[in-house]
């Protein structure tokens, strides 16, 4: 009997392997192989147009750590990630609390809030470039009308305006993610908790800090990890808005990789940047993956 069972189990295992085979094949070809290939390339000097290269060992990495470009890009990446992520969290949690209330046309409001997240970054950037336009943009017009500025402002061509604009547009585009995630969690907090706190005489502010926030803690950790990873690797939004300029003041690591590979034509150096960037992200990724595993275990 037990022999037969193991036979069945073995047949099941074989079937399971067959079902996963296409996934494994595709993964190996388009993800695992390129990943190792990227590490391998980072030890070479590859001239992009001819694709000819020579082994240079660790010299790409040595150059990278000594060059101001890398540290500048790392600094910009951190400013962008931290700035945008904080705004996403503040607006996202605030908006989720508002949408959790019974406001008029709630589902319409929710759709409108969600929309920036789903439109293409290309669309978002085109619209914002038009809003930011120095001659005919509505933003300059409004700011001048209210009297905040006397002359049209250059939103994307000077510092610190460019970084602030990029961070703001990033916050606008990605805060809906926080809204939906927090909203889903809010809806699962038992009402009884609030009733009990009310009876004990807790006001709305005390209820927020004593019940809502602790209940949200777990989901917030997940949101912060995921968004930190995604913001850190953001390419489209920054590349399309400023292209890394003015000078290199909004150039983040992904933009640096692109520039090095396809504008400066050094794929080896670009790979070295990409590998270092991945190593930095690995810290966040491991924390997130650990957390997910723990969740599944419990």
């Amino acid at each position: 009997m037990s022999r037969q069972k193991t036979l069945l189990e073995r047949r099941y295992a074989a079937l399971g392997l067959t079902l996963i085979a296409p996934t494994v094949l595709i993964f190996s070809a388009v993800i695992v192989y390129p990943l190792f290939s990227a590490i391998y390339l980072s030890f070479y000097n590859v001239f992009t147009p001819t694709l000819e290269g020579e082994w240079v060992g660790l010299s790409n990495y040595a150059e990278l750590l000594q060059s101001g470009k890398f540290w500048n890009a790392l600094k910009n990446t951190l400013i962008w990630t931290i700035g945008s992520l904080s705004l996403q969290l503040i607006f996202g949690i605030g908006m989720a609390l508002v949408l959790h209330q019974n406001i008029w046309f709630r589902s319409l409001a929710r759709s409108l809030i969600l929309f920036p997240y789903f439109i293409s970054t290309v669309v978002a950037v085109l619209v914002w470039k038009w809003l930011f336009n120095d001659l005919y943009g509505i933003l300059n017009h409004l700011l001048m009308k209210v009297g905040i500025i006397d002359f049209p402002m250059d939103f994307l061509g000077t510092m610190p305006n460019a970084m602030i604009s990029v961070i703001m547009v990033g916050a606008w585009k990605y805060f809906p993610f926080v809204v939906i995630a927090v909203l889903a969690r809010l809806q699962s907090i038992p009402d009884a908790l609030y009733e009990a706190a009310k009876i004990d005489g807790a006001g709305p502010i005390a209820r927020f800090f004593d019940i809502t926030l602790p209940q949200l803690r777990d989901v917030l950790v997940v949101i912060v990890m995921l968004r930190a990873i995604w913001d850190f690797k953001e390419f489209d939004l920054i590349f399309l808005l400023t292209g890394g300029g003015p000078l290199n003041d909004t150039q983040t690591l992904p933009l640096l990789v692109y520039q090095e590979a396809f504008a400066l034509n050094d794929m080896g150096m670009a790979s070295a940047y990409a590998v270092v960037m991945m190593l930095i992200m690995l810290v966040f990724m491991i924390v997130y993956i650990r957390r997910t595993k723990d969740d599944e275990g419990s």
């Binding site: 996963i20 996934t23 494994v24 993964f27 388009v30 993800i31 695992v32 192989y33 390129p34 990943l35 290939s37 990227a38 390339l41 694709l51 990873i229 850190f232 690797k233 390419f235 690591l253 992904p254 990789v257 692109y258 590979a261 794929m267 670009a270 790979s271 990409a274 590998v275 960037m277 991945m278 992200m281 990724m285 997130y288 993956i289 997910t292």
Partner: peptide
């Protein structure tokens, strides 16, 4: 495998893009 899936889900495109470019060319 499940771990690899999650890892690649978080992996930045710019890491893969150079080898993929070379591969497809």
């Amino acid at each position: 495998l499940a771990f690899l899936v999650l890892f690649t889900y978080l992996l930045p495109s710019v890491v893969l893009i150079i080898p993929l470019y070379l591969l497809l060319v």
